[in-house]
Design a protein around this nucleic acid. Structure first.
Lengths: 130, 130
DNA sequence: ATAAACCCTCACATCAGTGTGAGGGTCAAT
DNA sequence: ATTGACCCTCACACTGATGTGAGGGTTTAT
């Protein structure tokens, strides 16, 4: 099948399919006219790429084990686990950082609301309200 | 004071100070020779910029209220709260996304470990072990 | 007057995947 | 033979703060 057809079947843009090829993730054969010719298995390959990209892996990381996992169960491919582990650590670090920022933001928001509240009370007093 | 001195006093690189200027965050006067001349107050300005950058705000967002907060309490500047609120939402969204990815990674890691464990048991049986 | 230590502007590189467009072939159906 | 729908490669743009380097001026002290 040609690239447009593969794009339609997988929901991945033609541009991205060419990019995956440049990153060594998929290797269509070329027809005499230069067109890429994909085997039906390419659909599965692209679906796998999508899955791994959604896990936050880079194309480079995916390239390191894609050939293996396409032919075997993931658990057979020794390259997978270390990638998962280090990505997990990375993600956890990012979550911690974001939580710290979140806390800081929340504190600053609270401070502002409190000060504004205090200010409202003062204004009320000026106007003789309680 | 000149840019190098300000950089030393604040721990911010000369490059970054020039960048902040290009983003409208700080406006030194120019000496006859073209050198930037910063007032002593610039130190405080840069410290504020650092603080807001650490809260995950962009220079553009900071530019929207920096002048106000340098002259008043934050709670006085109406522009601040909406920025904090939307940044908080953004951060929370990112945390949710990362937590989803984290869950997926953990599940895949567990699956692999289970399969490998099962496989180990099989191998043990082949070799007559328990 | 020379050297060290400043300062200036301009501009490319980083990360990574994707959009977009130019300029140009190919193929199928009319 | 023309048209529309494909396909190709190459390359710039984006996001955003910062590093880095080229090429060149200024200041200060010796």
């Amino acid at each position: 099948m040609k690239i447009g057809e593969l794009a339609r079947q997988t929901g991945v843009s033609v541009r991205s399919l060419r990019y995956y090829e440049s990153q060594g993730l998929i290797a269509p054969v070329r027809q005499a006219n230069g067109y890429r010719e994909y085997s039906p298995l390419a659909i599965e390959t692209v679906e796998s790429i999508k899955l791994y990209l959604n896990l936050g892996l880079s194309t480079e990381e995916i390239a390191g084990f894609l050939n293996c996992v396409l032919k075997n169960k993931e658990s057979f491919c020794a390259e997978v686990m270390p990638v998962y582990q280090s990505k997990l650590e990375e993600i956890e670090k990012q979550i911690l950082q974001l939580n710290q920022i979140k806390l800081n933001l929340e504190q600053r928001i609270s401070s502002i609301l409190e000060e504004q509240h205090d200010q409202d009370i003062l204004i009320d007093k000026e106007h003789g309200r309680e």
